Deep mutational scan, measured.
Amino acid sequence: QLRFETNGEEQAKKVLEEAKKHNLEAHVTIENGKWVVHVK
């Protein structure tokens, strides 16, 4: 499982879109005010 700390909602959405293009499972959590994308 990969973990990407992003700078906010915009970047998190871009990472999610990329993951979906590659048929990867991804979800976002907010940790300590940071948007974190988890990709399987």
Rank of each mutant, 00 (worst) to 15 (best):
Q1K: 10
Q1I: 15
Q1S: 14
L2A: 06
L2R: 09
L2N: 06
L2Q: 09
L2F: 13
R3P: 03
R3F: 05
R3Y: 06
R3M: 06
R3I: 10
R3E: 04
R3H: 08
R3L: 06
F4W: 09
F4D: 02
F4A: 03
F4Q: 03
E5R: 05
E5M: 07
E5D: 05
E5Y: 11
E5K: 04
E5A: 05
T6P: 03
T6D: 03
T6G: 03
T6K: 03
N7G: 10
N7Q: 12
N7W: 12
N7T: 13
N7S: 13
G8N: 15
G8P: 01
G8T: 15
G8A: 09
G8L: 10
G8S: 15
E9L: 11
E9N: 04
E9W: 15
E9I: 12
E9T: 04
E10K: 08
E10F: 09
E10Y: 10
E10T: 08
E10V: 08
E10M: 10
E10R: 05
Q11N: 07
Q11F: 09
Q11L: 07
Q11D: 14
Q11C: 13
Q11T: 08
Q11A: 13
Q11R: 04
A12M: 07
A12S: 05
A12D: 00
A12P: 00
A12G: 02
A12T: 04
K13M: 15
K13T: 10
K13Y: 14
K13W: 13
K14L: 13
K14I: 13
K14S: 09
K14E: 10
K14T: 08
V15F: 14
V15I: 15
V15T: 04
V15R: 04
V15P: 00
L16G: 01
L16W: 08
L16Y: 10
L16K: 02
L16R: 02
E17F: 10
E17W: 11
E17A: 13
E18M: 15
E18W: 15
E18T: 11
A19R: 01
A19H: 03
K20D: 04
K20G: 06
K20W: 14
K20R: 14
K21D: 04
K21N: 08
K21L: 11
K21R: 12
H22R: 11
H22D: 04
N23A: 08
N23D: 07
N23G: 15
N23P: 01
N23S: 08
L24A: 05
L24T: 03
L24Q: 05
L24W: 12
E25R: 09
E25K: 09
E25L: 12
A26G: 06
A26W: 05
A26P: 02
H27L: 08
H27A: 07
H27P: 00
H27K: 09
H27R: 09
H27D: 05
H27Y: 15
V28N: 00
V28T: 04
V28E: 01
V28S: 03
V28Y: 07
T29K: 06
T29P: 00
T29A: 08
T29D: 05
I30H: 10
I30T: 06
E31I: 08
E31A: 04
E31G: 02
E31Q: 07
N32A: 06
N32Q: 08
N32R: 04
N32G: 12
N32D: 12
G33A: 03
G33W: 02
G33V: 00
W35N: 01
W35R: 00
W35Y: 08
W35G: 00
W35S: 00
W35D: 01
W35P: 01
W35F: 07
W35A: 01
V36Y: 09
V36P: 00
V36S: 02
V36E: 01
V36M: 04
V37D: 01
V37H: 00
V37S: 01
V37A: 02
V37R: 00
V37M: 00
V37T: 02
V37K: 00
H38T: 15
H38P: 01
V39Y: 05
V39D: 02
V39A: 02
V39N: 00
V39K: 00
V39P: 00
V39T: 03
K40N: 14
K40T: 15
K40L: 14
